[in-house]
Amino acid sequence: MTTVSIKEVAARAGVSPGTVSHVLNHPGKVAAATRERVEEAIRELGFVRHGSASTLRAGHSRTLGLSVIDIGNPFFTDVAAGAEGMASERGYAVILGNSAGSRAKEERNLRVLAEQRVRGLLITPTDEDLTRLDRLRERGISLVLVDHPAHRPDQCSVAVDDVAGGRAAVAHLLAGGARRVAYVTGPLTIRQCRERRQGALAALEAAGLGPDRLGVAEMTAMTARSGEKSAADLLAEGLPDAIFCANDLLALGVLRALLQAGVRVPGDVALMGYDDIGFAAASAVSLSSMRQPTYQLGRIATELLLDECENPGTHAHQHIMFQPELVARESTR
């Protein structure tokens, strides 16, 4: 099989080999018309770059790593889609690692990504100890925290204000008449779960109610099955006025169990989720939720990462914090 060279692509496109190299490595620096002409020549000739050779010369590849806590959660699926979309536009591919909430698995994934010489890393860490990420930076791998605020000036982060989200969710339930609220959550070692509870307590305090009005059901996983189990426990103990779930998967499991038990939602108990995944609006009783800009999170985090990768001398680290949006539906009306 004959290998097509960069010189042949350049001749077909009517440009210099250097321009072809720029299209392959720095497409944003090439005029759109010229880039399209080169890409058409690449397609026509079936040119395939020698990835391993270019990686050895540059010390890294045109790949980015993405490490998430739970790819089974549509929240992270949407974040990944945003990251992949931006990366593709800039000529990069994304390698996905799913930690499943396990630090040990996360560290194994990070080792593999480093061995693959990824150019940069997007990560939603499994816990608050981020010193392990310093080893990657020492190897020249840029990184951006996703859905996790950075607490140091030499890192970029893109996150959503979870304290504000928890406060808005419970304030909405209290405005509907609730005075006792159950918070169904995943492990409180997860920052998002912990900060959403903090916001819930702030809403109770603002309403003149004590922290004893918030019951906490801490589950080992943030899945619909865990939601069903928590609902069974709540039914046995006595239902509160409202239930606030740390994500929509938990809330959908709660909803299923309540409806099967003949409980009216919201007639007997109001129900609130978090994330506003696609299934929230399509459930048997449409689910009120706190919407997060998931796709945008992935895109902006990738844009920051690529700027750090490609412009290390001028890159300015940013800590971007989005505000969640309350979406009220049938489950709290």
Rank of each mutant, 00 (worst) to 15 (best):
A93S: 14
R62E: 07
A257S: 12
S54I: 05
V181R: 00
H22S: 06
V170P: 07
D154T: 12
R132F: 15
V15I: 08
I320E: 10
R167Y: 12
A159I: 00
L188N: 04
S67P: 12
F76N: 11
L113C: 09
L297I: 10
G166K: 02
G18F: 01
E44M: 08
S5V: 10
V112F: 03
K229D: 14
G59F: 04
A33G: 11
L287M: 09
P17V: 04
R43S: 09
G82H: 00
A270P: 06
V181K: 00
D147K: 09
S226M: 06
L250D: 00
V181L: 02
G267E: 14
R119D: 12
M219H: 07
S289D: 10
Q198W: 13
S52I: 12
I320R: 14
R108G: 11
A282H: 15
G72E: 10
R62N: 15
N73Q: 11
A168E: 13
R49I: 12
L188S: 06
M86I: 13
H317L: 03
T223R: 05
L145A: 04
G210Q: 08
A270F: 02
E36L: 04
T19V: 12
A11R: 15
A246W: 04
A33S: 14
A232C: 13
R139F: 04
V9R: 01
S67N: 11
V160A: 04
A206K: 07
L305S: 03
V263N: 02
R119G: 11
D162E: 14
G210K: 03
E115N: 13
D307R: 10
R256M: 13
R191V: 08
C309F: 02
G101H: 07
R213W: 03
M1F: 09
P149H: 07
A10N: 04
T126A: 14
M222Q: 15
L121E: 05
A221W: 06
I69Q: 14
G120W: 00
R108I: 13
L45C: 08
S99K: 04
Q198L: 14
L130R: 08
A207Q: 03
G140K: 05
G278M: 02
